[in-house]
Design a protein around this nucleic acid. Structure first.
Length: 435
RNA sequence: GCCUUCCUAGCUCAAUGGUAGAGCAGUGGACUUUUAAUCCAUUGGUUCAGGGUUCGAGCCCCUGGGAAGGCACCA
């Protein structure tokens, strides 16, 4: 067997060493008599952190610990740097994130978190496979930056001499594949947003997006529950998690609340994006929201929701019926053109996912893009532009489709029960280290 | 970008403005059944960097760097 020396207890002619590989810890019982004087002397010189290989027999010590008694022991790789404190581990977040290798060596918690991450992602792939979805890969380098409200990273291709954007969403390419007749596609991929860094935001993060032809928002809400509940079973062996001290069973149906109803209930008066914008502005002002001139009723309703309702959401909840104004790619509600057939999944006040019945009318989509373009020209740096190729795709005919996006990093945070996104990303974005 | 807090040995942490320390790791020694082994001895410092105040600064002040949390933005 092979492993890294994590602990060493030297009692003269007998050395106990705890070695670790990815499957766990094992004790070596190294007897001077069994390995010979010369070899024993070199084993005495081994340090914590060294990688060794050993051949021997399985035995039990007097205290009953299963051990291996080596006849031969080989140094595989020397650790020149000392390991962090064997008892206290590595606490300094700066060192833990910059030197993740050291963090993983000594912190069990860090190893577990990334195992949970792996189990969640592979669980998603299994569930989606069972539902007949095809995994695809779409470009990271985009000519147009679309599919979400976010500031992109820009880059440049030398030979083509063209400006490119790192993708901020997977959406528009995946829906092109629905036009192409692939019917059920998904991608789990990295996206990039040139925005602030916080406990919930990293400039590059992992998104799962799926699109299902002949489905709508109700179908993808159902898939959301299935994906996440099954991921919990696979990754942490339970669907019951504790959020803010409250025990919550993910397997129970998630409440569905319309955004306008949540705000109305909170305010004690009906709110709707169709009402005069002045009324909504004064409501916003009454609650300390700094609104902007270009905001319509829809944006104001969203701002009210964020200010008044978001903080109170603990258990997974579908907030539905987002205003059309803030949902340029979602199909309008068949019963209310001011709202869309859209939902966001909120858990513990954080947005975890987003989905809707996709807008598949190229004429209506062009109108929405034009509104985006106007907002961009008016100074909204996150607004999109008119993606002519996407419109051309829609003109070939996109079947009615339901779409869903889930922020994988935040899902890992939820199930692994860690408070910072840096804990679920192996190498989070940090400033330059001054050495 | 803003606010608050933090940065001392390889790691985890101490140190009223008055000689920079402990535990672990390392080094030397004792020990053939340990479990963070134990015991004896011992090495190790540009106190994040630079400036200032002071007889004297790890500690007070200023500037810069990095981190964490919060706010803003967002998923």
């Amino acid at each position: 067997m092979a492993g890294r020396i994590m602990l060493k207890r030297d009692s003269g002619k007998l050395i106990f060493a705890t070695i670790r590989d990815r499957s766990g810890d094992l004790q070596l019982f190294i007897s001077k008599a069994a390995v010979g004087d010369e070899s024993f002397a070199s084993i005495k010189k081994l340090d914590l952190g060294d990688w060794i290989g050993a051949n021997g027999t399985v035995m039990t010590t007097r205290k009953g610990e299963l051990s291996v008694k080596p006849e031969r022991l080989e140094l595989l790789a020397k650790a020149v740097r000392p390991l962090p404190d064997k008892w206290h581990g590595l606490n300094d977040t700066d060192t833990r994130f910059r030197q993740r290798y050291a963090d993983l060596i000594v912190n069990e918690q860090a190893r577990r978190t990334f195992e949970v991450r792996h189990e969640i992602i592979s669980s998603f792939r299994r569930t989606l496979h069972e539902h007949g979805f095809t995994e695809v890969e779409t470009p990271v380098l985009h000519v147009e930056s679309g599919g979400a409200h976010a500031r992109p990273f820009t880059t440049h291709h030398n030979t083509l001499d063209m400006q490119l954007y790192l993708r901020i969403a997977l959406e528009l390419h995946l829906k092109r594949l629905i036009v192409g007749g692939m019917e059920r596609v998904y991608e789990i991929g990295r996206i990039f947003r040139n925005e602030g860094i916080s406990t919930r935001h990293n400039p590059e993060f992992t998104m799962m997006e799926l699109y299902q032809a002949f489905g709508d928002w109700n179908d993808v809400m159902e898939i959301s529950e299935t994906l996440i509940t099954q991921a919990a079973r696979d990754a942490i062996d339970t669907t019951v998690i504790t959020i803010r001290g409250e025990e919550i069973d993910l397997a129970e149906p998630w409440p569905r609340i319309r955004m306008v109803d949540a705000v109305s209930e909170r305010l004690g008066q009906q709110v709707h994006p169709s009402q005069p914008v002045e009324e909504l502005r004064s409501l916003a002002e009454a609650h300390g929201i700094r609104w902007e001139e270009r905001w319509g009723g829809g944006k104001l309703v969203e701002a009210l929701f964020e200010a008044l309702c978001e903080a109170d959401i603990v258990r997974p909840t579908f907030i539905t019926g987002h205003p059309t104004e803030i949902s340029p790619l979602a199909r309008a509600d068949r019963a209310d053109p001011w709202l869309t057939e859209r939902f966001e999944i909120f858990v513990d006040s954080r947005e975890l996912g987003n989905g809707y019945s996709e807008l598949n009318d190229p004429v209506e989509q062009r109108r929405r893009f034009e509104d985006e373009q106007l907002a961009k020209e008016a100074g909204d740096v996150e607004a999109g532009t008119i993606d002519e190729d996407y419109l051309r795709a829609l003109e070939y005919g996109m079947p009615p489709t339901g779409g869903l996006g889930i922020g994988m990093d935040r899902l890992v945070m939820l199930l692994a029960d860690v408070g910072s996104i840096k804990e679920v990303i192996l190498f989070p974005t940090l400033r330059h280290e001054v050495i």
